[in-house]
Write a protein that binds this DNA or RNA. Structure first.
Lengths: 367, 367
DNA sequence: TTGTACGCGTTATCAG
DNA sequence: CTGATAACGCGTACAA
């Protein structure tokens, strides 16, 4: 590999001069153009490429940011990642990617590796239960800016970017309500996830506002799942139970798209049609949502925005002169530590106006 | 940030001793346990974290590998990425992720950044047309191992890992044939993609073997597309044309899953049923394939394997003492430069035995 | 323009 | 046997 010294030798100057010229440092003004040209030519000819490792060591910053994601195969991850990587590119930062796979030891090992590599910031894409106080403490100690994406931490104290789940759920329920649905089934997310609680709260709020009574017999909870795809079969199973149950419903609102897709499968395999016999609404707007039949109506999380917002926040913090950690100017804890991005209702084919003629549910009772 | 010297000061020894002890270097044998303990304790207490930048500079290898992907949002990418990252983790290498977004300048800029960062190897996930001789020359000059994934380069000379497209296509056609289909429509991939040609060749080979005549009126070509999702609507559109055409068909084989999904939409919106009226077969087995209704039968590319195979190959090359590039021991060009992984037929709900009672196509003519 | 110290960890050499 | 000293890898920056 060609070094500065090689170029210096080739152009008959000291390596300091080469550095100065190639970087157009202030001192370059005192170097005659002829010399500059000679140096440039030599660098060009030899194919000199500055060693960023050395540069980073000298400058005390690596120009790298760590991206710690919980599961690369999760469709939510892909979207956020894309936004994050894109924003980093704009700022000439390079991302180091770590796929935790929902595995705690892996998380810790990766974290250590990233810190040793001297990443200047960390974006953590978490949807699960692993991250807790201990890790945060560890991170806080390391003094590097960190932003969580997608899930709020119960303990707080960490900058977080999320979708406004309450607003999203309200949007969704409002949509179903306006289509005329009154008997609505809900597949709630796992208890352990903060998002699940938020979405449910949004549903309750909106229901109250609409004067809609929620029938708890139509509410089921997803079990905590290790990976995104298992919620498909969970959704399918729960929906089968719902369909086999005594309470009819004309619409179903799922915790997320994967669950909704599972629910749709159950509805269709039961011989019912979507949306005619049962509307189905998801949450997330993953890549697969528009591809099925019918295409899934859903609440879109602005994944790319979540990613880029997180990156920009990290970058911003990196600029700040390191202030004492734990002490936040605003006074109140969590003040200014949370950014909520607005979700968006995406109406596709899986939700429709309630059919008066064809009663929902199995039509076994009522109607 | 705590350095070796800090630990040395705290434990009253020279920083060299600290290094020796912490790394358990050979010389550590001569250091009494008491001193070792003191050093370890100090390192622990101060939270010392070795600076990998300095280490890399010294050792002349960064322990990083570049992952250059054409489009993070492409479902094919996600799968391969996962495999690649996973394999890197096993070897304690960290991936730097670069999302090229099918943009040539971005490719070049990222490539330069990665080389300056002194990545020790490069895995390039390419499905498109940008990569050409110029870039390869540039890379060859840099002497770092590089492996292409997913698409073969026309010019050759670069190590490549791909799915055996010919075998996959044959598998697919064989499957449809055995279900009784004789009138089969094909949505071929864009001309520019090498994969497309391979898959078509596989179809021809298998057709010959089965003594099946291919009706060219049932063959359509996808236009070159900028992103994965546009092939959904392309597939949909082409299928509409096919359905409106004079030649009936009972099955359709698409270039990839996205196209197949588009085709399925077209078939369903025309009032036909899948697979009863028309079987549909995809290629890839992307995440969305099993989620629709009916779930898509497809030829699976072993994406994770492709990724990990590429990584392992790069890693392997990195071990080798750098031999003169361009000269490959096997003699013949491209000998040992290509690894083909076997695809797998995944039968789900979108393909079925041909229905004798309900003729395929629009039933307007024939039958 | 150049010499030189520096950033940080590694390792060979050397003195006690 | 114990541990310190110094040079090195590469680019940067300041004094000369």
């Amino acid at each position: 590999m060609i070094t500065l010294r090689d170029v210096a030798r080739a152009s008959q100057v000291s390596h300091a001069s080469v550095s100065i010229v190639l970087n157009n440092a202030p001192l370059a003004r005192y170097i005659p153009d002829a010399t500059k040209a000679r140096i440039l030519a030599a660098a060009q000819r030899l194919g000199y490429r500055p060693n960023q490792l050395a540069r980073s060591l000298r400058h005390q910053h690596s120009h790298m940011v760590g991206l710690l994601v919980f599961d690369l195969l999760d469709p939510f991850c892909a979207g956020v990642l894309e936004g994050a990587v894109s924003s980093l590119y704009e700022s000439s930062y390079l991302p180091i990617l770590a796929d935790v796979r929902n595995d705690r030891p892996r998380f810790e090992r990766y974290l250590e590796m990233l810190l040793q590599r001297r990443v200047e910031g960390l974006v953590v894409l978490a949807n699960w239960l692993f991250i807790d106080i201990a890790m945060i403490a560890d991170l806080a100690g390391s003094r590097i800016p960190i932003v969580l994406v997608g899930t709020r931490l119960a303990q707080g104290g960490v900058r977080t970017v999320i979708t406004d789940n309450v607003a999203g759920a309200r949007l969704g329920l409002g949509h179903l309500f306006e289509l005329g649905h009154r008997q609505i089934a809900f597949l709630r997310g796992p208890h352990a996830l903060a998002d699940a609680a938020m979405r449910w709260r949004g549903i309750q709020t909106e229901a109250r506002r609409r004067k809609l009574a929620l029938d708890m017999r139509l509410v089921k909870d997803l079990p905590a799942a290790p990976d995104a795809f298992s919620s498909f079969s969970a959704g399918q199973q729960l929906t089968r139970e719902l369909l086999a149950g005594p309470v009819p419903f004309s619409a179903l609102m799922a915790y997320d798209d994967m669950t909704a897709l599972g629910a749709m499968r159950a509805v269709i395999e039961s011989g019912r049609r979507v949306p005619d016999d049962c509307s189905i609404l998801g949450f997330d707007d993953i890549a697969a949502a528009p591809l099925g039949n019918p295409p899934l109506s859903t609440i879109r999380q602005p994944m790319a925005q979540l990613g880029s917002c997180a990156v920009e926040w990290v970058l911003e913090e990196m600029q700040q002169p390191k202030q004492s950690p734990g002490v936040h100017p605003r006074g109140k804890a969590n003040q200014g530590m949370l950014k909520r991005l607005p979700p968006e209702l995406v109406v596709r084919g899986s939700t429709g106006r309630i059919q008066i003629s064809t009663p929902p549910g199995r039509g076994r009772r009522k109607t």
